[in-house]
Design a protein around this nucleic acid. Sequence first.
DNA 1: AACTTGTCAATTTTT
DNA 2: TTGACAAGTT
Length: 693
Amino acid sequence: MIHLDELNSPQREAVVTTDGPLLVLAGAGSGKTRVITYRIAHLIDRGVRPDDILAVSFTNKAADEMRQRVDKLAGRLARRCTLSTFHALGLQILKAEKAALGLPSGFTIYDASDQLGTVKEILRRLYQSDDDRRFDAKSVLFRISRAKNAFVGPEEFAEQFTDEDHEYDVTAAEVYPQYQEALKSFHALDFDDLICETVRLLDRDEAVRERWANRFRYVMVDEYQDTNRAQSLLLNHLVRASNNVCVVGDDDQSIYGWRGAEAGHILEFDKHFPGAKIVKLEENYRSTPHILDAANAVIAHNTKRHDKRLWTARPARDKLQLVACEDAEGEAEFVAGEIEALCATRGFRPGDFAVLYRSNVQSRPIEEALRAASLSYKMIGGQAFFERKEVKDAIAYLKLALHPRDEISLRRVINYPARGIGPTTIERIAQAATQHGLPLFDGCQKAHEIAADALADRNRNALASFCDLVENGRALIASAQGGTHPGGLKEAARAYLMASGLQDDLQAAAPTPLAAQKKLTNLEGFLTSLERFEQREGRDLGAFLHRISLDTKDDDEGHDQSDQVTLVTLHGAKGLEFPVVFLVGMEEELLPHKRTLYPDGPDVLDANPDLGEERRLLYVGITRARELLYLTRARQRSSRASARPRSPSRFLEEIPPHLYDARDAAMPSSVATPEDEEAFARAALAKLLKMTS
DNA sequence: AACTTGTCAATTTTT
DNA sequence: TTGACAAGTT
């Protein structure tokens, strides 16, 4: 039994309003996750079957956290609720309905690099003889992905962009249908498809539609401001019958508009779900009053938002610190020095600090300064475990054994480790396969029949032994899944990968023995995670591969010492909190970012740029801080080779001056007046002029 | 097949 | 200044 008196009054209202549409506007630090978990527990208390409850979030991390807290509150019963990400939910539906989907033998999930490979392949084919048309595959893929997020299919997309519009839009319109066709023939779905194809399936198949409309009676969505059109359509299908939909989010923290999130969903929720109740959570349990006042002041400059104002019962503490530094290095040294000082004088630990920046390049000088100061740090958003090359190669081998039609995986490993199947051979066999209407792998198997004269004996033999390798791997895995292989899937996979020569190559090709050891350890870690999956969820390699495509857990959770300074982008910081936060690079062209100010190239200033999302980024950054907040900037910054003067971010002017101390990194711990600042700037300018003349 | 040289661009990123 | 990537060289 949960205790509703542990909640404040709007929180309680959000928890007990169980039926009908409900929008919970949860300001930063207002106990959002608490409301969701209490709400679930309360539903169960009231006798709702856990099977009827669904809570969707965007990240695995959020879903895991929800799971833990619900388990703690509601105990064993809660195990049966579905707490999932949008993508995992889509996958669950597609798998459950695979008969209706028309992919009975299963499918591979393509990640960003697989997608990119597919687009590159298509671009090559389209413009192979045309030297002037070298399109950046990333930009093309970005447009396709954006279309999918908006639930715009290839035909509809093509209608929007005829001839002379935007070059990349025209190209994307040309590539998009071919891309979809390629994925289909590879038996592959990309991340976006996990949502889009689910919606398409629900749209076209009435029986499936009815099944899922009635599957859940109570649906909750976390971080609702981040939903894109496709996700919103999926949600509609799921709540059609019950109309019990509770969405939780904060329009002021909508920072993913650029990848298709539509803040309109949260702004117009009551139009979309008539009769919706709206509850605002404005009491903040995280930050001091000065920090909240600054956040409120900044965000008030945005129009088109739900009116909200964060407040706290906490007493006032330190003012914000606005610090001007000489250059990026000076800024980094200031941050490192301040961390050391605060640890020494005020009892903070390195783990209490976070350095937040707009773009990843800014982390470099910070890292160097922290290293120089012997402060250990962790970067959030580094390379994920399953994205390391050696692990990706292993995955490609396994995917190929399961899905020989997966051409991207095939191309990835067909000549890695090198086995004498070079680009020419691949192109010839690909051509022959196309002529005979065969998938590439089948073409390789039948090389001696369909391309006998096009290829040398040597090449044909290499192809044959590669195909044998994969076929043997397939047999090994099949026997492991049937339970007849000693050591199970893990050992079957190991034997297959060993036969592929992957391990030997890692050993041989590494620049140092240490590097080789590290890679082999990563590979072993991969096999261990397969073993764990096998024990917990059963011997199903396909299910394992799906799982790891959706998981982005990195491997350093083990040696995750908590006493490290956190380095993270403003985007990556959403949902986190720290006693002390440094927001670095508070300058024009960094925040707001150059690309927002000049969307059409460096020379074309947008007369009226939409700075709302940049401002929300700052808002997110400010509201991460519990006790102390530093806003730092550099007077000059070297871009490429030369130092360029920088102006303070226009957003700084939106913070009322009584909330901060302005100071100068060159005059430590003194409070600089605006006059001091100006004098210093003049001196710096004079120095600069003397240097250049 | 491995190595070198040249060119071009350089936000944010989960799943 | 870095880095990714493609084309050219050995």
